[in-house]
Amino acid sequence: MIKFRKNIWEFANPNNFLSIANKIIPFFLILTIITLSLGLVWGLFFTPEDYRQGSSVKIIFIHVPTAFLAINIYFMMLLASIIWLIRRHHVSLIAAKSAALIGLIMTLSAMLTGAIWGKPIWGTYWAWDPRLTSFAILLMFYLGYLSIWQTMKFSDKIGDLSSWLCIVGSIFALLSRYAVFFWNQGLHQGPSLSLDKEENIDNAFYFPLIICIIGFVLLFLTLLLIRIKTEIQKRKINILLNARDG
């Protein structure tokens, strides 16, 4: 299937990347469909009701994976941006660019499902709880990162700018997150709405949840690979067009 290469940086060559991506995309696609449908069907139909939250606990099977991805995609973008700035691999930059939209959608759906879940359990769709606030902050930085790509044409310069924006954004996102946490834990004894998600969870929910997380991660990887491939081909087309038109 996939041969292990000596050096991970060989992925950075767009042509190597394309040939590998072409091989593994169908495989990933099938795997995604299997795990996602398995996890969701298991979660939706074959889990018991929570004694405290009733059947609304079933929302966990999409809320937690999307929230998990929303945060980790931003980390991945940060990593890819740093790699681009240091080693100048185009695939890395394109990966950061392609991941941003998926991350935005994941953030939105995590917030949406959270709001729907929050209404019956906490009695409100939205509260300025630290966790929710940090998601709002994350959303703003995703929007900022996407808007730089929306307004400017693809070039190495814009790549540099967007990478710096990503780095600066993550510094300030972390700062704001801790600023919010500082007040709610240290000085201000606010009402704590956030649930302990992983700790008091029962085995009956644990396994389908893990499968759902794996399924969503695979979904992200598949989409990411396809988007990177498309983006590389777009740049190829541009180069060809430029060569033809002179």
């Binding site: 929007l143 900022g144 954004g169 300030f172 700062l175 704001s176 600023a179």
Partner: peptide, 13 residues
């Protein structure tokens, strides 16, 4: 769009 979110920590405090 870029800068207003980065004012957040200072505005919060």
């Amino acid at each position: 769009i870029f800068i207003l979110p980065t004012f957040l920590p200072i505005i919060i405090f």
